[in-house]
């Protein structure tokens, strides 16, 4: 094993293109829709969504990876949009809170959050919901301890944590009961 630089170099097509630093067209796939948007490479996915695409559901709480309010899915995995460059998402599938509702029907997690009053000011809520759904998909919602631990990357300053956990358990249990 290991990297054979010579063999790899031989298969190389052409020198990679350097893009930026000024604005250029970037193709993003958000909630299944292609958008071509002029962006400098330094623009984060979060700022691209909020300032350029009008998708303000993803929130900016810290802009440094410490709060989770900007949680979105890239290629199906929950990540932080504030530490992701938008241009690096070309060719990847980005899903935001705005992409959850199917045919106008809210996602069960959205309904469960309402039912359990799992928010107050609502600012962390889209990130919580994106994490909460992913949590179940990951298989990290088996126990109360796991839910609390694997939801700890989403800070809720209003402290709706008990309600958030209850909403997740409801959705998990409803899925298990077909």
């Amino acid at each position: 094993m290991g990297i054979d630089l010579t063999a790899e170099a031989a298969s190389r097509h052409q020198a990679p293109t350097v893009r930026g630093p000024s604005e250029e067209p970037v193709v993003l796939t958000i909630n299944g829709t292609h958008h071509t948007v002029g962006l400098e490479p330094r623009v984060s996915l979060l700022d691209a969504l909020r300032d350029r695409l009008g998708l303000t559901g993803s929130k900016k709480g810290c802009d440094q990876g410490t709060c989770g309010a900007c949680t979105v899915w890239v290629d199906g995995r929950r990540v932080l949009a504030c530490l992701t460059l938008a241009i690096a998402c070309e060719g990847r599938q980005v899903t935001t809170i705005e992409g959850l509702a199917a045919d106008g029907e809210p996602h069960p997690m959205q309904r469960a959050f309402v039912e359990h009053d799992a928010f107050q000011c609502g600012y962390c809520t889209p990130g919580q919901i994106m994490s909460a759904i992913a949590l179940i998909e990951e298989g990290n919602a088996e126990t109360d301890e796991d839910i609390a631990e694997f939801m700890s990357g989403n800070i809720c300053r209003c402290a709706a944590y008990p309600g958030i956990r209850q909403a997740i358990k409801d959705v998990r249990d409803a899925r298990e009961r077909p």
Partner: peptide, 19 residues
Amino acid sequence: MRPLGYARVSTVAEAVEIV
């Protein structure tokens, strides 16, 4: 954030060379 150029590479050799 400072202005940044961006390049996506597909081989290790490219990555090493460009940086």
